[in-house]
């Protein structure tokens, strides 16, 4: 049973991953990503020359922030397009479970992002030529980045399972991610400490930026937050996909 699920996940992951690299969009997104990140890294390098500490904070923050815009674009196709073209009919009548379809597709997208992240390791490598950066700090921030992207992509997969229209899926996940990024700023206007506390815990900013990037530490609640949101989003995506069977 476990072996079977692992095999199914691998089959779907492999298919989705190779579909990404067979289309020009992923190269375009990748190019755009590295352009932005490269600019921010150059600015950091300039500030190092003026005596600022040698860190990856700004560069990794930028890579994290870009998830809001890029993750919806990477994931909008995943399930929507199958519904629109009808290929989901064969996928849903193949001996794979709905959750395997959802998780396999999510892993495919996460795989693409992992390739981006691995390529971006060139930046910390450059830092080592400029001096001796704190390797632990950088590793922690990268783990945060990777988890944040996993979460953003899971939300994108969920949105894609909600509608056969890619553009609607894009807008839904973009809105959700902006909401999660800005929740604290919005709820700061409400002078209730409990609500502010909840909003702060729900915000990507406090788990990624404030903790894993700037303080260079990983707390249990950070892991619970990212993994929890991933699990909830993928669970809902599986259920949305399941309701297609009833509404078909």
């Amino acid at each position: 049973m476990v072996a079977q699920s692992a095999r199914n996940l691998w089959t779907i992951f492999r298919h989705e991953f190779s579909l990404y690299f067979g289309s020009p969009i992923v190269y375009f997104i990748g190019a755009l990503w590295f352009l932005f990140v490269g600019v921010f890294f150059s600015i950091s390098v300039a500030s190092f020359n003026q005596g600022a500490p040698l860190t990856m904070d700004n560069t990794i923050s930028t890579m994290g922030f870009l998830a809001i815009f890029i993750a919806p674009g990477l994931t909008m196709r995943l399930i929507s397009e199958e519904m629109r073209t009808g290929t989901h009919e064969l996928l849903l009548t193949a001996p794979v479970r709905d959750w395997e379809v959802v998780v396999g597709k999510w892993l495919g997208a996460w795989g693409v992002l992992t390739v981006f992240v691995l390529i971006s390791l060139i930046f910390p490598l450059i830092l080592t030529f400029l001096g001796s950066p704190d390797g632990g700090d950088i590793l922690t921030a990268y783990i945060g980045l990777w988890l944040l992207w996993g979460m953003a992509l899971a939300i994108g997969v969920m949105a894609s399972a909600m509608t056969p229209y890619q553009i609607i899926a894009f807008i839904i996940s973009l809105a959700l991610l902006i909401g999660l990024w800005l929740a604290q700023a919005v709820f700061n206007f409400i002078p209730n400490p409990l609500i502010q506390e909840i909003a702060s815990e729900a915000t990507i900013f406090s788990h990624f930026q404030n903790t894993m990037v700037q303080r260079g530490i990983i707390q249990v609640e950070n892991l619970v937050y990212f993994i929890g949101v991933i699990a909830i989003a993928l669970f809902l995506a599986t259920n949305f996909l399941g309701t297609r069977r009833w509404r078909a």
């Binding site: 579909l19 067979g22 289309s23 073209t85 009808g86 290929t87 009919e89 064969l90 009548t93």
Partner: peptide
């Protein structure tokens, strides 16, 4: 154990 051909043969076009 079932092979299925849906009415409008849905295929992935990019592969």
């Amino acid at each position: 154990r079932v092979g299925y051909l849906p009415e409008t043969v849905p295929l992935y076009k990019d592969i």
